[in-house]
Simulated scan of single mutants.
Amino acid sequence: MIDHLTKLRGHVSITLPPDITDIRPFTWRGFLAEIRYTYILSLPYSINLADKAIRNKIKKAHANGYHSQPTDNMEHVYQCLIETEKRKGFNHQISVADLELAREILGEDRFRCYICYSESGEPVSANVTLLLDADRAIGWVAGTKTAHLSNGVVQQLQLLELEDLASQGIKSFDFCGANIASISESKAGWGGALKPYYVVRKPVFKDILRSGRDWLKFGQRPSGSSDP
């Protein structure tokens, strides 16, 4: 793998699963490594592991007539992804055709989508999950319409997904990242184990600029702070 990566041009990076902890062969060849974190849940899952706030949000979603289910409607999934892109100012770089192609290539056994509908039948939240093997699944992408975000739809959908994956024999679910404070907080409430993982990449010229930025950031201290 390393020999192949060194021959590629341009930006080259690879995210390693949490169970790969020895990255020395990459660093010996000059790759840069960054440590990141994710939460992993063991399946089958018990809702008793979730904190009270999550359980209350699920009850709220039920009370307001929302219902969640597996889906093969990629247009409905896409509608939810787009809403999150607009709200958070990023681009998944995924189209409806991309989702349909992925489902066709990987099949339902590897590519599973879940969606939450309002009482009126509007798609309001979606999760797309990849089944890596017979035991492991990762939450690949997700999106929720802003108007329904506070109604517990995300939590109801997540619980349905965990139950469905367990029924397929999956043993663990990886939330696929918990590196932003607000995202980490929302995922931590499910009671999973915090696990580190590595991202390794070829160095580029921008790394010089990044080093300068990191040096300046490290040297900054909150106003009013003083030396011990």
Rank of each mutant, 00 (worst) to 15 (best):
S211W: 12
G107T: 13
N127E: 14
K171F: 04
G189H: 05
G192L: 08
Q158T: 13
R103G: 12
K202S: 11
E185V: 10
S167L: 02
A178R: 02
I170G: 03
P123T: 13
Q156A: 06
C176E: 09
P123Y: 14
G107R: 11
K206W: 12
G191R: 00
C113V: 03
G189A: 08
F175G: 04
Q168C: 13
R201E: 04
W140G: 03
Y117P: 10
E185M: 02
I183Y: 01
A137D: 10
Q155C: 01
R112W: 01
L130G: 03
A181H: 11
P203F: 13
F90A: 00
L209Q: 10
I115A: 10
L159Y: 14
C113M: 12
R213Y: 15
A166P: 05
N127R: 06
D174Y: 08
E104L: 15
A147I: 09
A181I: 12
L194F: 10
E119D: 10
F111A: 03
V128P: 00
K195E: 09
S120C: 07
W190G: 04
G177I: 02
L157V: 06
S125D: 15
S172N: 08
A178E: 02
S125R: 04
N179P: 01
T144H: 04
G139T: 11
G139W: 13
S167E: 05
S186F: 07
F205D: 06
Q158N: 14
V96R: 14
G177S: 01
T146N: 07
A178W: 09
A193M: 11
G121R: 12
R210Q: 13
N151I: 00
L106Y: 11
G121D: 08
S184C: 07
C116P: 03
L106E: 07
A147W: 05
R110W: 05
R103F: 10
T146R: 11
P196M: 05
L101A: 15
V96H: 07
A126Q: 03
L132S: 11
A193I: 15
G212S: 08
S95Y: 13
R110T: 06
Q93L: 11
G121H: 13
A102K: 08
I138Q: 09
L165R: 02
L194R: 14
E100Y: 09
G177W: 03
K202E: 03
L131T: 06
S186C: 05
E122G: 09
L162W: 06
G152N: 00
K202I: 06
L101P: 03
Q156M: 06
K202V: 05
W140S: 01
